[in-house]
Nucleic acid binder design. Structure first.
Lengths: 168, 168
DNA sequence: TCCAAACCCTTGGATGTCCTAGTATATTGC
DNA sequence: GCAATATACTAGGACATCCAAGGGTTTGGA
């Protein structure tokens, strides 16, 4: 990982696609592969920033989501839907956050099937500190130009809507 | 996952960021979060297509990379660099591909430290079939417009170069 | 009223990714 | 020529993600 490659591997893959007669899908292949790689780079940066807090991105996302809920609590199925991850992933994250004393599980007042995740004061404080560093170290230095940020939001927003993420 | 959300959770997160006084980084936060989510959606589609072949995306990428090498063989460290993943991830993928009879390990002729990964004829055939389906089912139906594909390639290409992926 | 279907969460299993450490082989410098 | 350093791969561990299955709770139709 340390040393940059002499050539862009994704551009090379695109050339290979074209050479094999798949020119019609070479460009979207390159775009999709670039998204995969960009995600990998960004996730690496985020995890590096969160590590000193004892957080992973998955746990941070849950903590941040709870901190924006008015009551500081959410049902697990709601968290799963909003974070768009499998329910078992939420179970996993809550287990670890609970061990760390950042959230607690509490029964839903009216629905016996549902478990509420509730932020502790420690959890709320940690979410705040982690967000501040994430803002300054990652989001504030994304490396994307302002116009490109707008383009990404537009393009990926359309894609996500078409993929069935949301109906708005 | 099944039902679309009534609202875009990323747009909501952006509003939350702005409400908390982080307007200066709200847009890049939204763009980065959208990249993470888009990657998740695309990976899901790809894995669904590859599953009938007994392949995962990681294994497919390795297979495809080998199929483009003239000799059909590559040193593991080379594969790790080109795929931009950790060497242990390549070891893992090769283990499983080898069990499936799709690749074999062979010693490097001059460097005793190095192991070559070599495509078997089964591996080459499977890579070809999987690529065909991936092209028609995923890359050919990406949901991105032609202009958006070009924008993505440009924006993410710049990002990756600045991140140190390649020097070209 | 009551049982079947739907829903919620958890457990167990399979994969992939990374990190750290360890073993083996090459290369470099004295 | 030999020791020190660098490189290549593998083993073990921590996490996260998904799927399939299981047990408890609600809901809704007969």
């Amino acid at each position: 990982m340390g040393t940059p490659l002499p050539r862009d591997p994704i551009a090379d893959a695109r050339l290979n696609w074209e050479r094999h007669g798949w020119s019609d899908v070479a460009a979207p292949m390159a775009a999709i592969t670039a998204i995969m790689r960009t995600q990998q780079i960004l996730l690496g940066r985020i995890e590096a920033v969160l590590k000193p807090f004892g957080l992973t991105f998955a746990r941070y996302e849950l903590l941040a989501l709870l901190s924006f809920a008015r009551s500081g609590a959410l049902p697990m199925n709601k968290a799963s839907a909003l974070l768009q991850v499998h329910p078992t992933s939420v179970t996993n994250a809550v287990d670890r956050l609970q061990e760390a004393g950042l959230v607690i599980r509490s029964p839903h007042p009216t629905d016996g099937r549902t478990t509420l995740i509730e932020l502790t004061s420690d959890g709320r404080a940690l979410a705040k500190r982690a967000t501040a560093v994430l803002n300054s170290e990652v989001f504030g230095q994304s490396g994307f130009g302002d116009q490109d940020v707008d383009q990404l939001i537009r393009i990926l927003g359309t894609f996500r809507r078409n993929a069935g993420d949301f109906s708005g």
